[in-house]
Design a protein around this nucleic acid. Structure first.
Lengths: 119, 119
DNA sequence: CCGAATCCCTTCTGATACTG
DNA sequence: CAGTATCAGAAGGGATTCGG
C-alpha cells in the first residue's frame, strides 16, 4: 500500500458517474428533483428501458439514488438523489464548467476533430 | 436548443478523462511531471503497451498532453501535460477527495459489495 | 407502468509477436 | 526504446419480447 494507491482513488469516483447515461440522470435528479421511471425515460429520449434500468440499479447499489416503490396499480416507482448522492454536486458542476470551455476549445482548433454528440 | 443541452455539457469532460487508464496517466504526469513511455509503462504495471499507446494518443488528440519525440537512438519520447491539460487539476482533485470518502462509505456498508480494484 | 429475459452485434481489451 | 499488427475473448449496448 504505497503512494500509488492514493493516486488511483480518482477511479472510484469515475466508476460511479462514468456510465453512459449516469451523469445525465444525476443532473436531472439534481436540478429537477424526484422523478418517475417514465419521466426519466421521456427526459432522455434516446435511452432504452434496459439501459435506464441498469444505470439506475447501479446508482442505487452505490447509495447515490433512492428507489421508492409504491404498491399501487398501475405501478409507480420514484427515483431521487440520496443525501450522499448530493455530495457529487460539486464534481458535476466543475465538470459542467470544464465541459463548456472544452467544447469551445475544440471548436477553435484548426483540425475540427469529432465533435460532441448531443443527446 | 433548450435547457437539456446545457445539462449534457458534463459529458465532454467525462469523455476526456473516462478512459480506463486516463486518470492514472494524468495524475502521474500532474504530480511527477514529464515522463517517458517506458516510465509510464513501469508506473502502471498492469497496462499493456497497446493500451498505453491508445490512451496517450487520445489525450494528445484532445490537447491534454504533449508528445515530444527526440530523434535519437534508442528512441526517446516524452509525455507531459499541456497548459490546457492542467486545467483538469481541480476536477481530478475533487474526484480524488470524493473517491477517498466513497471507499470508506462503501466499506462501512453491511453488504460489502464489489470493492475497489486497485491498480 | 415498470421492468426482466433473451438474442445479437459492436466495441473494448488482453496476449502475443514483430519492427524501425 | 517505443511503438505496430494481428487475433481472440470479454464486455457493452440495442432491439425485441414477455410478465406482474
Amino acid at each position: 500500500m504505497e503512494a500509488k494507491h492514493t493516486l488511483c482513488l480518482v477511479n472510484p469516483a469515475l466508476e460511479v458517474i462514468a456510465g453512459k447515461w449516469k451523469t445525465t440522470i444525476l443532473l436531472i435528479l439534481l436540478f429537477e428533483g424526484t422523478k418517475r421511471f417514465s419521466e426519466l425515460n421521456n427526459a432522455i429520449p434516446l435511452i432504452t428501458k434496459k439501459m435506464l434500468t441498469s444505470q439506475l440499479r447501479e446508482l442505487e447499489d452505490q447509495d447515490i439514488i433512492l428507489r421508492e416503490v409504491y404498491p399501487v396499480v398501475p405501478p409507480k416507482v420514484e427515483y431521487s438523489l440520496t443525501e450522499y448522492g448530493r455530495t457529487l454536486e460539486p464534481i458535476l458542476h466543475l465538470m459542467h464548467d470544464w465541459g463548456s470551455a472544452h467544447v469551445s476549445h475544440m471548436a477553435n482548433k484548426p483540425n475540427g476533430r469529432d465533435f460532441v454528440e448531443m443527446m
